[in-house]
């Protein structure tokens, strides 16, 4: 899209673009290109020289059981986060759509977790569930549940899922509420005149009309779980115990920064880039469908 009427200056637009383009090239494209470059090379043990090894790093990464493990972990984690963040958000949005009194108060409180940093969200839930200290951990012990997420992988996973979903509920709630409020009241009224009860009205009319929003949110939540939850994992479990919560982003960071495996970490980066591109493409394919909200 372009305007019919523009200014004539020749140099000015380049000057206006310069800061953004400079930062983009230096901090985005150059490092990304480097990641691709390193992903095809192997350094000697002293890091003095490197040589081209083709796809070898990729093969090593993809054959590495710990990478496959991380891939599975990420898939489970992101799906669980998406579901746990979407379902309650939809319920709350449907309820909030009905109330008139105190609607703003409810909305304000429900939107607040968005503002909390992922790592902080992790700390909040860690504190509730810290074995022997946390309030919830006490209750669980009292109920006879052997709660110790520091030692038990599935419990650690559950904890980071809850912390991650908690933060994302705000976002989903807002979009569901906007979606609900954009459904013409006359449609619901027509369904009521057709004899549909409260429940049927929701499942036959409201929910189908919300499905583009739901799909959009599903993609957004998966992207969030993939990339924005690093802080939660790092603050709460450090990927443990025994790598039970090591999602891909955490592994890239760990292998690259802590284990200093440049080639392997770069190959993982390149794979992640592919995943982002795929997810973004899906998101944009459906972007037109939800613009009417």
């Amino acid at each position: 899209m372009r305007r019919r009427v523009v200014f004539k200056q020749k140099l000015l637009p380049y000057l206006l673009l310069a800061p953004q383009v400079a930062i983009t090239l230096v901090f985005f494209y150059w490092p990304a290109a480097q990641a691709v470059w390193y992903s095809t090379r192997r350094e000697d043990p002293f890091g003095l020289r490197s040589q081209f090894v083709g796809l070898e790093n990729f093969i090593t990464v993809l054959e590495d059981p710990s990478y496959i493990n991380s891939l599975t972990t990420t898939a489970i984690f992101s799906l669980a986060v998406a579901v746990l963040a979407i379902v309650p958000a939809l319920l709350l949005a449907v309820m909030a759509d009905r109330v008139v009194r105190a609607a703003t108060v409810y909305k304000t409180i429900l939107l607040s977790p968005y503002a909390v940093a992922p790592a902080i969200a992790g700390v909040l839930w860690l504190f509730l569930f810290a074995p022997g200290i946390g309030v919830v951990a006490y209750v669980l012990q009292f109920l006879g549940i052997d709660w110790n997420f520091v030692l038990r992988g599935e419990q650690a996973m559950l904890l980071v899922i809850i912390a991650s979903a908690w933060k994302q509920i705000s976002y989903n709630f807002l979009f569901f509420l906007a979606g609900l409020q954009s459904i013409p009241k006359s449609l619901i009224e027509a369904a009521a005149i057709d004899g549909a009860g409260e429940g049927r009205r929701f499942w036959d009319v409201v929910f189908p009309l919300l499905s583009p929003t739901t799909f959009f949110l599903l993609v957004v939540n998966v992207v969030y779980a993939f990339f924005d939850t690093f802080g939660i994992i790092h603050a709460v479990t450090q990927g443990g115990p025994a790598k039970a919560t090591e999602i891909l982003v955490y592994k890239v960071w760990y292998d690259g920064v802590m284990a200093l495996d440049l080639g392997g970490s770069s190959a993982q980066s390149v794979i992640l880039m592919g995943i982002v591109i795929a997810l973004t493409a899906i998101q944009f394919r459906y972007v037109e469908r939800k613009v009417h909200y």
């Binding site: 983009t24 230096v26 494209y29 150059w30 990304a32 990641a35 890239v252 690259g256 970490s265 982002v276």
Partner: peptide, 17 residues
Amino acid sequence: TLMLPVEVRIVPTYAVV
């Protein structure tokens, strides 16, 4: 650049900085 979040270029970006 939408497709290049910092999470996918951690090490080289650090190297630049």
